[in-house]
Nucleic acid binder design. Structure first.
Lengths: 204, 204
DNA sequence: CGCCCCCGATGACAAATGTCATCGGCCCCC
DNA sequence: GGGGGCCGATGACATTTGTCATCGGGGGCG
């Protein structure tokens, strides 16, 4: 049996290197490429055609782990993808699964566990951390309509209504209506807490 | 020469374990204890009396890396402390330095580099990542008064003025005045962006 | 001591925001 | 064809928030 070829993508050199070292201890796994960004991960994947891509969810600058997974599904269907993340937001899990990701684990797992999961994913199985799965289920589906979510995103940095309206190419009144509706659905008393709640639930 | 005894504290098992494995490769370093939380780190430090404590800045629940460093300075003056962090906010660096931390590095450094820095810190030197240092200098000192910063923290989750006033035991008018002053100093157009800016600069 | 700054508060006013009702257009689906 | 939902907008209104002037008290400092 030939070893599983793994691509590692994580912006934190410390973690990436350490991870590579630990996975190297497993003699049925071989890290064939490392990347420090989403863009780099894509390039590496094209060049090395790994069996499994282990992607950090949040990477600076370009595409995040889920975006990379989406691209990989199209470009390299033979490559299974999995996401590793520090903060497990429920919505991220959903996004990831619909991007064809087959493994989703928090960084709190041990290296042994990760190695097992890589093998499972490579074998075609799926693995989702039970706790994250429970969170995602309890968080449920987003009650927000497309525009509500969109406007909420524009509101994310605390911008005033006028600016949101401009960026969304909408009337200020319309923006206020959407924000009001979104806040009501989320049980928030103003748009700022609404943004926070939506972020926590992974709905933006 | 006897090996440097290191305490590792990081909530992410994956990183902690991997780090321990990498540092173990350096034959003048020995990881004598690992901790997954601030509280645990303190307990471990008391029990094992390490030469150097490598602390993650953000840990869930209890005390963060800086708080641990503060406690360690009092309880275990012989133990040098250093902070490792993912997101390098300028203010954190300042807080850390005034807590007696002697090393401050982002997780983007390599393990070799980290090992060198641990040795430097153990030898009594200080090390601060140049990029983070530059950010901290350019961010400058907080222009906020104590109460302004305090009120801004209460405003951090988007709560309405009434709630902030209650939590801060202040009049609503006073709260509005402080928030207005803080927003003006930060160049923000409302308290929510003020909160965001203050966070970015590490002033809250 | 006088000066300055911070604290905490009040009042008044303007501006931004939240809330609600209502409209027309569109699309999907029964 | 007729709901029903989402989209986008408007108007009116109440509430919240931001802004400013002002006051009194207290502590530090030349």
């Amino acid at each position: 049996m030939t070893a599983v070829r793994v691509l590692l993508a994580d912006d934190e050199h410390l973690i990436r290197g350490a991870l590579a070292a630990l996975l190297a201890l497993e003699d049925d796994l071989v890290v064939v490429a490392e990347a420090a960004s989403g863009a780099e991960a894509l390039a590496m994947a094209r060049a090395h055609r790994p069996d499994v891509a282990v992607l950090d969810l949040q990477m600076p600058g370009g595409p995040d782990g889920v975006k990379v997974a989406t691209s990989l599904r199209d470009e390299l269907p033979s490559c299974r993808t999995m996401i590793v993340t520090s903060h497990g937001r429920p919505g991220h899990l959903k996004r990831a699964l619909s991007a064809g990701v087959r493994g989703f684990v928090p960084k709190t797992v041990s290296a042994q566990r990760l190695a097992e999961i890589i093998r499972a994913v490579h074998a075609g199985n799926r693995y989702v951390d039970p706790e994250l799965a429970a969170d995602a289920i309890s968080a449920g589906d987003s009650p927000l309509t497309a525009r509500e979510a969109e406007v909420l995103e524009f509101a994310a940095d605390g911008a005033p209504i006028a600016e949101i309206a401009e960026r969304a190419s909408l009337s200020q009144g319309t923006v206020r209506n959407y924000l009001s509706a979104a806040a009501a659905k989320l049980g928030a008393e103003n748009r700022h807490t609404a943004v926070r709640l939506a972020r926590e639930r992974g709905w933006v």
